[in-house]
Design a binder for these strands. Structure first.
Lengths: 346, 346
DNA sequence: AAGCCGAATGTAACCGGTTACATTGCCGGC
DNA sequence: GCCGGCAATGTAACCGGTTACATTCGGCTT
């Protein structure tokens, strides 16, 4: 009762064309090594039978997959879209295809993904963040799969990273708010326990406060998943503090927008009553009212550099060199010097 | 001078364990068909040598890939993120992995992608929009790869689609604006020539105007790529019209936000001076000020249904049934009845 | 005319699991 | 004591291209 349908393959095609399998394969891969007449006869048959060679067999046999894996924590945030597009266009120019996978901020999912990528023998992996089980890095090394960490600087020499410096970038933003005279500075950031980028930005915030002898006030910090609604609620809570902050540093632009909208609802003026600085510099925050100050993140360059590095590593056997790409704090209309309104602390 | 490194595989492992390759394979795939003692000996070796079986060989040999391809026009718009996540979680429960690819609104890229998906012998393909070369559908059919169109209802019976109705949804929004008394209604939408969803929404807008005997004014329509800045500029242009529209229908929420921000800049009040309706119902428009009215798109259900349909089609050989999923026009604070101010506004 | 070269093509091994089928060995029933 | 039957394991074909190496043959050199 089985289907008798033989799928067309190089052997059946070779028979029809009256040539050998090697000739068919060559006609498709290296057309100029086949006599024009033979080649055309074969290509006509390929067309006629709509032959699409089995890529698995092809790269299984040739021992090359032409695949690079990219693991991002989410695809909801469009900052990763820009990053992904940069990687994709670089890879496309060089050959390999990109396998985009979404780990959803889960270490377990990421573990499974990495395993699957190794199973499919990808020729490179781009990781987001450095914090993960050491055995995963060992596995990649064991299979000689070049990999590179992005969006975070790896603290270990053996783990190459191509990234901007989260700590420095967040510190710069916090410093700027202090320079503007702010002392009560709220922080809305991601959940540090599951997100090393959030954790580094939080650390930077704390260390800058400490440097300026401003006591850390836990009630001014809110760790939230990256959903605008959650951020808006967090901002509402922070601004309802008996001694509300005069500035908010949001370690993510989605959260900054949530904070902005929440302030507008509460009739708290930005930047007159509260200054806001975001992080990522998404196109949307440039267009918002007021346009939000934000830390510009070099997503595109980072993607380009990571892709180039992997391509080079796959070609030669050279190890990947770590790079640090600068960020830029872009000041727009959402930040202003602190006004010393009477009756309040200074 | 070649590397002497033999990668570990079932054969080398079998030798070390003193068993046959079949036993190794079974120890990994069907552990209970192997005697506990043997199984543990093998698993210990797998652990020791960090053996990760070659998935290409595995699914090449077993003739199953466990792969489903998803082609989206962009990953920048977070509405696709929700859709993608729904698909991913359904597939994960059933087994297959999801290959996400970004066609970037380009027919050529999409053509290459479909070819590559066929080459890798995916077991299903989820497409966005129905408008594409017929030969691509034929190729998929020829290779017996189940596929389904989403985000647009396919006009052909032979092409199954699981989608909401773009025409009906856009018509409902336009009707609502008319019902609120608006007669001069601007439209900002995607580029109809490259985007069948945009084109259907534009058509719906036109047909509703016609139904209400409102003459179509070309200067009130702007087709734009989905970037907030472009939409903001378009809105600025539309609102600078000597006879500006009293309502804007934006066939995409990103564009609606751009329009909202542009109006705020121009000190045009929303909804007092101009009503805005968006499309997609992104979380961000619910939080914006004013919260935007928008056509809620069933991205999650559509993703679930599409994934389920492909899984079913792959299991049995049943063809996929088309489905239409309802949308819902959600009215929020950005829309108001037309005020009959004579001559002036503001 | 013998010998050589290179272009065109053919042959078959190979990539690394999977799996149908074969084999082995042990137990219990009769 | 023989044999059926089952559990555990082994053997080897197979998936479908790729490619190293072999072969064929026409033409050119000397």
């Amino acid at each position: 009762m089985k289907k008798p349908e033989k799928s067309v393959n190089v052997r059946s095609l070779a028979k029809k064309a009256g040539v050998s399998v090697a000739t068919v394969s060559r006609a498709l891969r290296q057309p100029d090594t086949v006599a024009p007449h033979t080649r055309e006869k074969i290509l006509r048959l390929v067309e006629k039978y709509r032959f699409v060679p089995d890529g698995r067999a092809a790269n299984f046999s040739s021992q090359r997959t032409g695949l690079v894996g990219l693991i991002v924590p989410t695809i909801s945030n469009s900052i990763y879209a820009e990053f992904t597009e940069a990687i994709q266009s670089r890879l496309q120019a060089a050959g390999p295809s990109l396998l985009i996978v979404n780990a959803n901020y889960s270490a377990e999912i990421e573990r499974d993904i990495i395993r699957k990528l190794i199973e499919s023998r990808v020729e490179g992996v781009i990781l987001t963040g450095y914090r993960r089980d050491a055995s995963l890095y060992q596995l990649l090394e064991h299979y000689r799969i070049p990999f590179v960490v992005t969006w975070a600087i790896s603290p270990k020499r053996s783990i190459p990273s191509i990234s901007f410096d989260n700590h420095a970038a967040a510190a710069e933003a916090t410093e700027m708010l202090i320079k503007l005279g702010h002392r009560r500075i709220g922080l809305i950031c991601g959940v540090a326990a599951i997100n090393d980028r959030a954790s580094m930005r939080l650390e930077a915030y704390q260390s800058v406060l400490e440097k300026h002898r401003i006591t850390f006030d836990e009630t001014l910090v809110s760790q939230q998943p990256f959903e605008i609604e959650a951020a808006a609620e967090a901002a509402t809570r922070l601004m309802s503090n008996p001694k509300p902050p005069t500035a908010l540093f949001c370690a993510n632009d989605i959260q900054a927008l949530g904070a902005l909208f929440a302030c507008q609802r509460m009739k708290i003026r930005v930047p007159e009553d509260v200054s806001i600085i975001g992080f990522d510099d998404l196109p949307i925050v440039r267009t918002a009212n007021p346009a939000l100050s934000s830390v510009h993140v070099p997503a595109r360059q980072m993607g380009n550099a990571a892709a180039d590095a992997l391509i080079a590593a796959a070609r030669q056997q050279t190890p990947i060199k770590s790079q640090i790409i600068p960020t830029e704090l872009i000041m727009r209309a959402s930040t202003a010097p602190l006004k010393h309104s009477k009756g309040t602390r200074r």
